[in-house]
């Protein structure tokens, strides 16, 4: 139980997927202009990331590993993720129209979001078991949502501010992300405290 708490805490704050692991930055800059689309994208990422990590974990441990094909990991994972996203898109359109209306437009963006492939590979690399992989994926995506929401909130305010022309748009977004990353550094101390608690 404690392990799961630490994995969640570490994935959301300490090793935030956007600000510390550098994954998923393209949508981070693209979809953080307002809060409502940040919500949509964040929820869609949680959804897809969790399913994709579960699927790739199963494929890796039941097919690739026994057949000694782990060198094909990259190509297999990306193909599985692309197919899965497409399938989810079709499925939502058919069976959950309301959900599709709010998440649908973000789904194609997610296929090429390196956060999905990155977390799937990391879950294998860290040799988590199945439950832990799913927890790790969901927590990482929650960290993505958190950072995205913070950024969207700041950018909504930023719109009314007079900025030097060259800094407008992505430039200032990246600089703010840098400051946010600095703020998230503060959590690393808490990680150490938590882990020493677990060690005793």
């Amino acid at each position: 139980m404690m392990d799961a708490v630490i994995v969640i805490f570490s994935a959301v704050f300490v090793n935030n997927i956007l600000l510390a692991r550098y994954l998923g930055n393209c949508p981070f800059c693209g979809v953080s202009k307002n809060l409502s689309s940040a919500w949509g994208m964040g929820i869609a990422v949680i959804f897809v990331l969790t399913i994709a990590t579960a699927a790739t974990w199963i494929i890796h441990h039941f097919i690739l590993d026994p057949l000694h094909l782990s060198y094909l990991q990259t190509i297999v994972f990306i193909l599985v993720i692309a197919t899965l996203v497409q399938l989810v898109e079709f499925f939502l359109q058919k069976n959950a129209a309301a959900l599709f209306q709010s998440l649908g437009i973000y789904l194609p963006l997610i296929t090429t979001n390196c956060a999905v492939l990155g977390v799937a590979i990391l879950a294998i690399k860290n040799s988590y078991d199945f439950i832990m992989s799913v927890v790790f994926a969901a927590a990482s995506a929650a960290g993505f949502l958190l950072a995205l929401l913070c950024m969207a909130g700041i950018r909504e305010r930023l719109e009314t501010v007079v900025l030097p022309r060259p800094f407008r748009g992505t430039a200032i977004t990246l600089i703010i992300a840098g400051i946010m990353a600095l703020a998230f550094f503060g959590f690393s101390g808490m990680d150490a405290t938590l882990s020493s608690l677990a060690h005793h």
Partner: peptide, 25 residues
């Protein structure tokens, strides 16, 4: 050390982007 870590990465690239925009303008 900050420059070698994540905040440095974001801020450096943000500044590069602003410089490119400035040259263009």
């Amino acid at each position: 050390t900050l420059m070698a870590k994540a905040p440095g990465a974001f801020i450096t690239i943000g500044c590069f982007l602003a410089i490119m925009n400035g040259i263009d303008e």
